[in-house]
Design a binder for these strands. Structure first.
Lengths: 343, 343
DNA sequence: CTGAAAGCGCTTACAG
DNA sequence: CTGAAAGCGCTTACAG
């Protein structure tokens, strides 16, 4: 057996051509006569040769990989349905061209910045996908300074200089409010997420605005870190407030699940005594009792689209922003009319 | 500004030495005089130079990255607390030496095999972490054939030729059975996982053996695909069987959550009418009503250990198997004595 | 349409 | 302890 892997030189020799020709064929460059091309392809197949990405990377100055750096607590991340589906979407866009996803899970801001610096310095990735955008996000200037191309997954709060691939939350959250108000609710509370993250901030603002559109004020509004534990604590706080809500809107499904349990533990029936809505459409929500009314996006499509735009940016030096179909309300059984008397 | 990144040659020139010396310093090779070393380090710092991983990879024939190929449905994956924590653990082992995790999420066996072949052919990774081991796992001979080093995360069903990093499930599952039998349960049903996966198979066998140790037979035993939907369906089947269980043991937390809902939907109280146990210790389980009794492992430690062993294998050409502390029972409130009369 | 050669930025024997 | 040079396996102008 050959202990040595075949190289492009072996293929060239076998096909009776120069290395350059072999390279042309494998990079779909024009100007190789069909018969020559066939001969080269045959020689490569016989030797089982494929271009070595390491060598190719050094020549092309491309790592042929995209980076995703996620700064979230692993336990919060584990409860979140977004990332696995998002990554699966990214994969579908990368696989066909032989690119690869480099993933980093970091605990805090320092590790996050260090990771981007390291990825850039060692050129481990050609570009990055920016998720969980924050206000005045430090990553934007950092990446610009590093010269590392990026796409924003979600709209940043100021022009970022990077393409944006957005999936609108607001429509879904407005639909939640319409749904609840339509059922007769007037005392609605809100358990928000991390308002350091733009989607947390925007969901809260959208909720407020939608209620105001009906001349209503939230009976309570708590910010959290998106964790189930925080969702439970916030629920307790809202239930203990003087004006008890007849419906609770949560900014994420895991929090809604935890909130549901708090209600049940107090002997309150959902939805008869209090309605509950989630956000993000996690699979498990459909298998709860009661099944969770929520807002479902399509993170897989989002991932595919974001990777596609980043690839285009790398290929062409520029790429258009992209707006995906908005997230939609999924009415299940955790919502219903408020209790009589609506008081 | 310099449009060109500095190279090792720039650093060498500035320090007044050869490129080789610079390389020696950055690879901790002996034989560089301390003052020279200082000069080189200073020059590199002034230029902001770091070794280029692409070039280094070509020379060393190492990609400096580990691969993780996960073949699971994204929605099942999203419900599973294992992977995010596992990956975070892998990261902690890689970060310190500047290695990186290449992640692939694939839908089926064909895509899985194609991904391993591609990773090997293009040398995108130096080794892979094998999770979700199956019986007669095709990946074992495939990887051996490709010459791609690996470590088994969990014990394979036959000697694999790769180091094994194992975390024993069995102790936890036995503790579940002891706990339930100790509470007085005699009619215990089991909702298993995918028995194509070894941990699914082993949990089932352990459950049976533990029951048998008390002279008991399962009143029902259903295999599933580990999904919440399948967990719900299995629960319905078990409840409709002639001999109704007073306790249900699930092979995963998401299934237990879905099963809980099925029980509640039927008006059965947990644990008064039926006890429920999960497996894997997902965070959300603690925030359910009732809070889920389950078996908690430490996937983060597992990930770190597995990556550590793979790194050792790559460095030394060999590595010892590693046995981690076993998963432990977490008693919460979804378990209690069986209803009277125990019939 | 094809070939010969330089170059990507490192590492690593080999000489001294 | 240090330097000069070959080599990793590709890609890509440049000539013809």
């Amino acid at each position: 057996m050959d202990v040595r892997r075949p190289t492009i030189a072996d293929v060239a020799k076998r096909a009776g051509v120069s290395k350059g020709l072999v390279s042309f064929v494998f990079n779909d460059k024009p100007g190789v006569a069909a018969p020559t091309r066939e001969r080269i392809l045959a020689a490569a197949a016989e030797l089982g040769w494929q271009p070595d990405q390491l060598a190719r990377s050094l020549s092309t100055q491309q790592a042929a990989s995209l980076g995703l750096v996620v700064r979230r607590d692993p336990t919060v991340l584990a409860a979140d349905p977004f990332f696995p589906a998002f990554m699966a979407g990214v994969e579908t866009a990368l696989t066909e061209r032989g690119w690869v996803l480099v993933l980093s899970l970091v605990p805090d801001a320092d590790a996050e910045a260090a990771t981007y610096r390291s990825l850039a310095a060692h050129r481990r990735v050609d570009g990055v996908l920016l998720t969980d955008l924050r206000r005045d996000d430090e990553r934007l200037p950092l990446l610009a300074g590093l010269g590392l191309p990026a796409v924003c997954v979600g709209r940043p709060d100021a022009p970022a200089g990077f393409p944006v691939v957005n999936l609108d939350d607001a429509a879904g959250l407005r639909a939640v409010v319409e749904h609840l108000v339509g059922l007769g609710h007037r005392r609605i509370g809100y358990v928000g997420g991390d308002v350091g993250m733009l989607h947390g901030l925007r969901r809260r603002a959208t909720f407020r605005a939608a209620l105001a559109g009906h001349g209503l004020e939230p009976v309570g509004l708590v910010d959290t870190d998106f964790s189930a534990a925080a969702g439970a604590a916030a629920t307790t706080a809202l239930l203990d407030a003087p004006e008890r809500p007849t419906a609770l809107v949560y900014a994420s499904d895991p929090m809604a699940v935890a909130g549901l349990a708090v209600l049940q533990r107090r002997g309150l029936r959902v939805p008869q005594d209090c309605s509950v809505t989630g956000f993000d459409g996690m699979e498990l929500g459909a298998h709860l009792h009661p099944a969770l009314t929520t807002v479902g996006a399509d993170p897989l499509a989002w991932g595919r689209a974001a990777a596609g735009v980043l690839l285009r940016l790398l290929d062409d030096g520029r790429a258009e922003d992209l707006e995906l179909p908005a997230a939609a309300l999924l009415v299940r059984s955790s919502t219903g009319p408020p209790p009589d008397p609506p008081a």
